[in-house]
Design a protein around this nucleic acid. Structure first.
Length: 316
RNA sequence: GCACAGGUGGCCGAGCGGUUAAUGGCAGCAGACUGUAAAUCUGCCGCUCCUUGCGAGCUACGGAGGUUCGAAUCCUCCCCUGUGCA
């Protein structure tokens, strides 16, 4: 039975923070001649090391990694940028005949990559600044009322307290001179040309939380606070990137708002909460082969390998 | 030992005679999410039951009594905790 014109395989590894995605991705890459495309909104930034749990330089040496350390922290990066960068990387890898492995925790980025984003304008900082100022003057509900006038449907779908989403919807409606609903319904361009295998890591919640706590503590022990201080001096403490987990708490510690013990506790909690949100997000992801365990576990790795091997052999 | 200040739901912390199962916050659980997403936001959150309802019952504000139509809130005694004086 000839396997002709079979589309290249794309492996997508998803799961909450600290579930062992990195270990599993490295094992898969080594076994199947793969290259890794990180799907992580913080790991894209250079110089953010300790708090991001990026794979180390040694870990990255034997396996090519993409979408890590690709922008300077003084630049803003977005889901749209990621969509372009990741798709380009996947195309190159596949063209080389190697296996692309997307490893991700950032749900929105993964969706942008796989399903696409609607065609909308870039962010406009001046407009955003004006909206925020007006919102501060007019009080709660103002942004929602404004959006209601621009696009009643969008206003009904975005909660009145969800400022960032309201602002984006208003921005799109104003900049594009048409309601964001129209952009939504125009459809998105999903990634095509690949057979996608989604493997999800779903370790037991209590065990995951334990790992998260230990890892957050370790980040502080390894110098997260110093790294944060240095990065803030270098790039400016106002950058939104310092709201990222761990860095936010380190910044609060430096500002004297928290003791070290409180900062560590807050970071642990933040990561736990994040893991929970990731579970919520990924549960909706279609066609995921869920594995109940950690990615560094030998049995789990074997199970993942089997999934991939099976998929490789099956003609489409 | 005496004098103050306190002991409230898993934690912190309001309430100080009646719309009080008890404001808030945290934790927890569930959910949303279309270009800053490790961000932001929503719901539930004493227990039990069901016809899942501005439903029914039960148990709750350190303990035991008391006052009152009615108490977490007032009184008495006791037990703890903190601070000050001895």
């Amino acid at each position: 039975m000839a396997v002709v014109n079979q589309l290249p395989l794309l492996v997508v590894l998803l799961g909450p923070t600290a579930s062992g995605k990195t270990a599993l991705s490295l094992a898969i890459a080594k076994r199947f001649c793969g290259e890794i495309i990180s799907c992580d909104s913080v790991a894209v930034y250079r110089d953010f090391e300790i708090g991001t749990a990026k794979p180390s330089v040694e870990e990255r040496a034997p396996v090519p990694h993409h979408c890590i350390d690709i922008v300077s922290p003084e630049r803003d990066y977005s889901a749209g940028d990621y969509q372009r960068d990741a798709r380009a990387a996947i195309a190159e890898i596949a063209a080389r005949g190697r296996l692309p492995i997307v490893t991700g925790g950032t749900g929105l980025y993964l969706r942008a990559l796989l399903e696409g984003l609607f065609d909308g304008p870039h962010r406009s900082e001046p407009l955003r600044a004006r909206l925020r100022r007006s919102a501060a003057r007019h009080g709660a509900g103002w942004l929602s009322r404004l959006l209601g006038r621009l696009d009643a449907n969008a206003a009904s779908r975005i909660h009145a307290n969800d400022t960032p989403k309201l602002i984006r919807a208003i921005e799109v409606s104003l900049e594009a001179r048409r309601p964001i609903t129209e952009a939504w319904t125009a459809g998105v361009e999903a990634l095509s040309g690949y057979r996608i295998l989604r493997i999800g890591l779903a370790p037991e919640r209590a065990a995951l939380y334990q790992r998260i706590d230990a890892r957050a503590t370790a980040m502080f022990e390894r110098g997260l606070v110093d790294e944060t201080r240095q990065l803030m001096e270098q790039y400016g403490a106002e950058r939104r990137i310092f709201d990222a987990l761990g860095y936010r708490q380190a910044r609060q510690l430096l500002a004297g708002e928290l003791t070290e013990a409180q900062a560590i506790e807050a970071a642990q909690r933040g990561h736990r909460n994040y893991a929970k949100r990731q579970f919520t997000w990924f549960r909706r992801e279609p066609e995921v082969r869920w594995l109940a365990g950690f990615g560094d576990d030998a049995e789990i790795q074997q199970a993942a390998m089997n999934e991939i091997a099976a998929k490789q052999d099956i003609p489409q």
